[in-house]
């Protein structure tokens, strides 16, 4: 008892595609994040290098990681919605 999803779920034929895409995008972001950690460990003073408008690498990289997360989230959602619609249309044809 009490062990079914709270709201009834329809079958999601796009779930395999979304999982694969998610894993690859996660790995890409993890790599960029690891780069931030690695620079701080290997060459901490490089974080003082001015990149543009007087902002140093630490600020640009830090803000960049935040902005990149949002951009990648939007891209991921775009691909997922497209695939969900494509498969829904395909199901409708059948």
């Amino acid at each position: 008892m009490f062990h079914e999803p709270a709201a009834k779920q329809d079958r999601d034929p796009a779930s395999g595609y979304k999982t694969r895409l998610g894993v690859w995008m996660f790995l890409f972001y993890a790599l960029v994040y690891a780069g931030f950690v690695a620079i701080n460990l290997i060459s901490p003073t490089a974080m003082n290098s001015i990149v543009f408008w007087g902002l140093n690498l630490a600020v640009v990289y830090g803000f960049g990681l935040i902005v990149l997360a949002l951009v990648m989230a939007l891209i991921y959602n775009g691909f997922c919605v497209r695939e969900e619609r494509r498969l829904a249309a395909h199901d409708g044809e059948v």
Partner: peptide, 24 residues
């Protein structure tokens, strides 16, 4: 701030939809 936000990437790309599908 950077780490807390980056964690949401794991939530979105890896956990969000499967968690919703599997749990109650």
């Amino acid at each position: 701030s950077i780490g807390y936000l980056a964690g949401w990437i794991v939530a979105l790309f890896v956990v969000a939809e499967p968690m919703k599908r599997l749990g109650k």
